[in-house]
Simulated assay, not measured.
Amino acid sequence: MPVIEVNGVVKRYRDVTAVDEVSLRVQPGQIYALLGLNGAGKTTLIRMLLGMIAPTRGSVHVLGAAVSAGDRSAWARVGYLVEAPAAYPELTVRENLELVRRLRRLPGVTANVTGVADVIDQLALTPYADRRARTLSLGNLQRLALAKALIHIPDLLILDEPVNGLDPAGVVEIRTLLAGLAHQHGTTVLLSSHLLAEVARLATRIGILHHGRLRAEHHADQLDRQRHRHLHLTTRDDTAADHALRAHGYHPHPADGGGLQLTDEHALTRPDQVATVLVHADVPPTRLVTVEEDLETYFLRIVGADHA
């Protein structure tokens, strides 16, 4: 049974459609990344998953139970971070977490519950444990918010832009932490982000949301196959090279910035044969390289039809 099941969900605010006919499934132990530009509808969808707002149409199930606005029945098994990190500013890091522990009615430490000291250590907050929250940097406030989401070792973790404000080392730490929760504890993770290159290192499945619609879904290991590739070459006589390649069944095109490009599969898999054709035609390549679309370019291509 999916941990998250979203069926035809629509959310409208008067004339604005924030989420438009979205359906998705998140399986147990999966790290699902919801990717989109700011304003794509990621936070709205997450708020519906948590029962903070009701969909205009469609249904949402979390951990096997239907979700409705104001229903908190599944929250005991869910950890979440939505939008900006929040904390009581005059309380210390330790006091904020102790308060969450009491509100969740958790014991101090058991085999299934992380103690306050443990989660402080887990999120690298030990040097700041006795500092008031108002004195923390944005990155450490984000760590505190993640600690609050993790303190009860949830079955499902829902995180909205979890690496906001973190330095590169902090991003790596959070990535390692989330991967460990999924692989060692079976925790299911749904996170939103606008950073494809980062989530590609972590997620097992990626959904691209744009203007409220789910534009594409891929398993992370399929991303490479979705990215465009071409063979770029230059010679001392590109016109003669074009004629020689066409005579051997290739389909060259002028490349931006000069030279020729080939997208033929046999050219991409055997560029040495392309070079051989050109050498025999007395127009040897002065440059021959396989160019692969980077992740950011792929992302912008997917949303590009509507991105201005």
Rank of each mutant, 00 (worst) to 15 (best):
N96E: 01
V163N: 15
T187A: 00
P168I: 00
D15Y: 03
T234C: 01
L195D: 13
R227A: 14
V303I: 13
L295Y: 09
T290G: 12
L45V: 01
T126L: 13
D242L: 12
V93C: 12
L138Q: 13
G115Y: 08
V303F: 12
T290H: 14
V279A: 12
A203H: 10
L166M: 13
L99T: 10
S59D: 01
N164D: 05
T286S: 15
A179T: 14
V303S: 08
V279Q: 13
I151M: 02
T188P: 00
T204W: 06
L191A: 02
G115M: 11
G165R: 10
A124C: 04
D237L: 15
V277C: 01
L177Q: 00
H307F: 07
V283C: 07
Q142Y: 11
E293K: 09
V274P: 15
P285N: 09
Y32S: 04
R175A: 13
E173H: 12
D118R: 14
G165P: 13
E296G: 06
A255H: 09
V274H: 14
L50K: 11
E98Y: 03
L63E: 05
A111T: 11
R25T: 04
Y298A: 03
P285I: 02
A247C: 11
H230R: 13
L24A: 03
G115K: 05
A111G: 05
L138I: 09
V109I: 15
P154S: 00
H243R: 15
Q30V: 07
G115W: 10
L159T: 05
V16L: 01
A267K: 08
L35S: 09
V22S: 00
I206T: 00
H280R: 15
A255W: 10
V274E: 11
I151A: 04
Y128V: 08
L99P: 00
A69L: 12
G36T: 04
T234V: 04
S192E: 02
D282L: 01
E296F: 08
H232E: 03
R25I: 03
L177G: 02
E296Q: 11
A117I: 01
A40M: 09
V9M: 06
L91T: 07
A203G: 12
L24K: 04
E90Y: 12
H280N: 15
A220V: 10
N38I: 10
I31L: 04
N38Q: 13
G258D: 14
S193K: 13
L136Q: 04
I302W: 07
D237N: 15
L63G: 06
E292W: 08
R301V: 10
L177N: 07
